[in-house]
Design a protein around this nucleic acid. Structure first.
Length: 601
RNA sequence: GGGCCCGUAGCGCAGCCUGGAUAGCGCGGCAUCCUCCUAAGAUGUAGGUCGUGGGUUCAAAUCCCACCGGGCCCGCCA
């Protein structure tokens, strides 16, 4: 309804000022301070056209604005025109939000979006850095779904990498028996093998030989490698689920190589998007010539197929992306892989059943910023294949890495020890449990600690913009106070408690005049659809995290200053309506961020 | 040699796309508020050359240019 209000007000301003409705619309904003309910900056736009000062224009324009049922008055203040909403606006806005319920702010139906994340190598547990990727990807998937996209969350499993070969060697030859969570155990084998590799030439040759056999397929080794990767992924997905992160499909690299790769490569060759080098240092390789696009780069050409005929990572990725965009005839066959706690089954390639995955209208890849160049290469190839529109909807959501205060996370060196996503959650839950209210019965405490502990971490990762490097610090990641996940959950819990205790039905009482804090809260509730939309179109969930925090803050202030249940009837019912609307919107916003919603704390 | 990202209070961040009112928030500091819907809360207070220097503009944290500091990339690794 707020959008409708802005549109109608824009019309009035356009009529009185001679601006177009679009210009008038974009001149409207909610001011930060206490200047009015809606501010109009039209005078700045008109000043050069009419050759008068903005203040003079504002003063002349304000009285000319036609009255509207939702606008009480328009007051010029300097160059601004401050608009004040009527009581009817607040009542109508509140009713509108209550009526829309879960569909509030939901976008119109759009096409299919495939979101790929976190694509962690299947040979070690997730550490804090992988977690950032996964939380970002899962949140973007949820934000896009709320914006109307049909979202498929997929995961690329690189089961043909050197890392898996090394882990497999460790599994076969180190002689250690698996114990504990499989990904943690396998990660330790990998660290040991990587250490030996530094000096052991024979080991280097053996693992390379292993990798070759794996790539060939149809052998005991290749089967064992696939099994190892799947076991590791299953363990990693326990972590996935513990953070409420879910997927639809897992695409194994070995299946890409065996199912769609040749077709894709043929297509790219046919269209002359890549060339076979006949001379120079890349002789015998198929490369994308990029000298014109990346001028002054030391080595601008990108090899997709090595001189021995095998594909580079970017080569395989390119074909995979073509499949995502529905450009290949080849289809994967799937098997049910894991039953997820959200009730949905995650499917993996390598089975017998067809699934309608792929053929996407938009592709979003959550990949570290160090891969900007190879991702650009893929976009460039799409353009050369004539897929201009597809290239425009091929999004690399680049994020910066999580670091320790004085070193990086390294899978090889094992610096992830002590900072795995599993250890983080355990510690967070422990801290959350200590703070639970004494009134909460023992039986419910574990569940609450889980929701709060998970929410604390989720929020601390999702609240920062992706392009910012994140230095991991326990106290910040696990914060339970201030600008934190639990603060938001707490506001939600308090609001819910009021509704639970009330016997009235929420309803805006006619004649009730909202106070300042109530009006501010309603105005902020009005912003949700706009924020949700922006968050989706810019692939930035942190905008919603920010919004949720501001909303919860406004509610907390209202909560402290005004009683709901003990107010007289008119106020009580109206405030109840406000609390209901707040619960709905904060609940929605947090769900879209993937934050768990405890009922008590 | 070239390209990308970051630089806002002691620390951690939002705001920059689309320039406009006193640059917001959290942690930490200081001082208040629980006979009252959960104090994981609220209120007040101290704390800022928005990296530096130019430019554009009536107006710059925001746009443009140069520079400084930090990180990343330009591999027949992934």
């Amino acid at each position: 309804m707020f959008l409708k209000a802005k549109n109608e007000i824009s019309k009035i301003i356009a009529q009185a000022s001679g601006l177009t409705e679009d210009e008038a619309f974009s001149s409207l904003e909610m001011p930060k301070g206490e200047f009015g309910d809606l501010a109009c900056k039209a005078a700045f736009l008109l000043a050069p056209r009419e050759k008068k000062s903005p203040a003079q224009i504002a003063a002349e324009l304000a009285p000319k604005l036609k009255p509207h049922k939702w606008v009480e008055k328009a007051e010029a203040m300097g160059p601004y025109i401050n608009l004040f909403f009527t009581e009817k606006f607040y009542a109508d806005a509140l009713k509108d939000i209550m009526k829309k319920g879960k569909s509030y702010g939901k976008g119109k139906k759009k096409g299919k979006a495939m979101v790929e994340f976190p694509s962690v190598n299947p040979n070690k547990p997730w550490h804090a850095g992988h977690l950032r990727n996964a939380i970002l990807g899962d949140s973007v998937a949820r934000v896009l779904a709320h914006a109307g996209w049909n979202v498929e969350s997929i995961d690329y499993i690189d089961d043909l990498g050197l890392q898996v070969a090394q882990s497999l060697w460790g599994y076969m030859h180190l002689g250690n028996k698996p114990s504990g969570k499989f990904d943690h155990w396998l990660g330790m084998q990998y660290v040991e093998v990587a250490k030996r590799m530094e000096t052991d030439q024979k080991l280097q040759a053996e693992t390379r030989e292993l990798l070759k056999t794996m790539e060939g397929g149809n052998s005991e080794i290749s089967k064992k490698a696939r099994w190892l990767a799947e076991e590791c992924v299953k363990a990693q997905y326990e972590t996935d689920f513990s953070y409420s992160i879910f997927h639809d499909g897992l695409i194994f690299e070995s299946d890409i190589v065996r199912t769609i790769f040749n077709e894709g490569l043929g297509m790219v060759k046919e269209n002359n998007a890549i060339v076979l080098e006949k001379e120079g240092k890349n002789t015998g390789c198929w490369v994308v010539k990029l000298g014109e696009k990346f001028q002054n780069m030391q080595d601008p050409d990108k090899i997709l197929i090595r001189s021995d005929g095998t594909a580079t990572y970017t080569g395989k990725d390119l074909i995979f992306q073509l499949w995502k965009l529905g450009k290949l005839k080849g289809k994967f066959k799937y098997k049910p892989f894991l039953k997820q706690p959200n009730g949905e089954t995650a499917f993996a390639t390598g089975g017998a059943a067809p699934k309608p995955f792929g053929d996407a209208d938009m592709v979003v890849n959550v990949i570290g910023s160090e891969q900007i160049y190879p991702q650009e290469v893929i976009r460039e190839v799409l353009l050369r294949l004539g897929y201009g529109e597809e290239a425009a909807r091929y999004v690399h959501l680049a994020y910066e890495h999580v670091m320790l205060p004085d070193e990086k996370f390294s899978g090889r060196a094992g610096t992830w020890k002590g900072y795995t996503a599993d250890e983080l959650l355990t510690e967070s839950i422990r801290r959350a449990k200590e703070k639970i209210s004494r009134d909460v019965p023992e039986a419910e405490r574990d569940g609450i600690a889980r929701a709060v502990g998970e929410g604390a971490i989720r929020y601390s990762f999702v609240r920062t913009t992706p392009e910012k490097k994140l230095i991991f610090k326990w106290e910040e990641a696990l914060s339970l106070e201030g600008n934190s996940g639990p603060y938001l959950q707490y506001a939600y819990v308090r609001a819910r408690k009021i509704m639970e205790k009330s016997e009235d039905r929420p309803a805006v009482s006619s004649g009730y005049k909202f106070n300042q804090e109530e009006k501010k809260l309603i105005r902020e509730l009005c912003l949700f659809p706009e924020l949700a939309g922006k968050s989706a179109s810019s692939f930035r969930p942190h905008m919603l995290a920010d919004y949720s925090y501001a909303l919860a803050e406004t509610f907390s202030r209202f909560y402290t200053l005004h009683q709901v249940l003990k107010a007289e009837e008119g106020a009580r019912k109206s405030r109840l309506a406000l609390v209901a609307a707040f619960t709905n919107v904060l609940g929605l916003s947090l769900s879209v961020l993937g934050m768990p919603l405890p009922e008590k704390m």
